[in-house]
Every structure is written in C-alpha cells, then in structure tokens.
Computed example of a mutant assay.
Amino acid sequence: MSTPLDMELFLAGLLTGSHATRQRHLRQARLIQAEIAVRWRRESPWFWQRKHLVWFLKHRMGRRSESTRYYYLLTVQLLVRRLGKSWVFSL
C-alpha cells in the first residue's frame, strides 16, 4: 500500500502569505483531498480530473456561506496551479 500524499509538500512552492493563510490553505486542501478520496477513490491530486473539483465545489460547498466558498475556491485554484492545468472555476 502506498503512503498518502503529503499535501504540505505538494503545495510547498505555492504557499505564500501569512502563517494563518498558509495553514488555512493546507487545512482546506486536506479536506478536499479526503472528500474526493471518499467519493471518487482518488487519493492523489495527480489523478484528479476537473469533474472531481467541480463536484466538491458544487455538492460539498453548495450550502456554505459565500465567503467560505470563496476561500475554498482560492485553495482549489492553488491545487490547479500546482497540477499545471488551465481549469477555470466559478462560484
């Protein structure tokens, strides 16, 4: 069995800003990773498709406040940038 992906190491080069901001992005990225792993059985972001992130934003964040969805969208954009994709998402 393989070891789980270390999200902190995965996002290390992209995380900037204050300590609190970096920790928020890491916490949210780990939650996104866990939710996609449960629903789609995709443990690593390297195997994610755009539909996985759209599902998370629509169905897992759909009832959250607008500000919460915005902060998760920022984290999703970091993940997409790290994956080297050109996917675009909206609230």
Rank of each mutant, 00 (worst) to 15 (best):
V80L: 00
A12S: 13
S65M: 06
L26S: 11
Q23I: 08
K85L: 07
T21F: 09
S67L: 07
M7A: 06
R24S: 15
R69M: 03
L31S: 11
W40H: 15
R60L: 11
R24E: 14
L79C: 03
T21A: 12
G62P: 05
S90F: 00
R82Y: 00
L14A: 10
L78D: 02
R30H: 09
P45K: 02
G84M: 07
E35A: 14
L83S: 04
L73C: 02
Y72Q: 01
I32D: 04
V76M: 01
T16Y: 10
L5A: 11
I32R: 09
L73A: 01
H19S: 15
P45C: 05
S67V: 05
A34W: 08
A12E: 11
E8V: 06
R27Y: 13
F47Y: 15
F56V: 02
H19I: 14
R82W: 00
V54F: 01
V76L: 01
S44M: 07
I36N: 06
H25D: 09
A29M: 08
L83C: 05
L83F: 03
Q23P: 08
G84V: 07
I32S: 08
Y72R: 01
E43L: 14
R63F: 07
H52Q: 08
G84Q: 07
Q33N: 10
F47Q: 15
L83H: 03
E43R: 13
R82E: 02
L91Q: 12
Q33Y: 07
Q49E: 14
F89W: 02
K51L: 13
K58C: 06
L15R: 07
G13K: 09
L11Y: 06
K85G: 02
R50D: 02
L11K: 04
R50P: 03
S44V: 10
F10C: 07
S90P: 00
F89P: 02
P45G: 05
T68D: 08
S86H: 09
L83D: 01
W55H: 08
R64P: 00
Y70F: 14
R81L: 04
W87M: 02
F47D: 15
W40Y: 15
L91A: 12
M1C: 06
T3W: 09
T75I: 07
A12V: 08
Q77F: 01
Y72F: 06
E35L: 11
R69F: 01
Y71N: 07
L83G: 04
F89Q: 01
E8N: 14
R81S: 04
R81I: 00
L14N: 12
L57W: 00
S44P: 09
H52I: 04
L26N: 11
S86T: 09
S44R: 12
R30Q: 13
P4V: 04
R50I: 04
R69E: 03
F56D: 00
Q23D: 13
R63Q: 15
M1W: 07
L57N: 00
L78K: 06
Y72T: 01
T16A: 13
V38H: 14
Q28G: 10
R42G: 09
Q77I: 00
P45Y: 05
R30T: 10
F10I: 06
R22N: 13
R22E: 14
R69K: 13
L31P: 06
I36P: 06
T3M: 13
R63A: 14
Q77C: 05
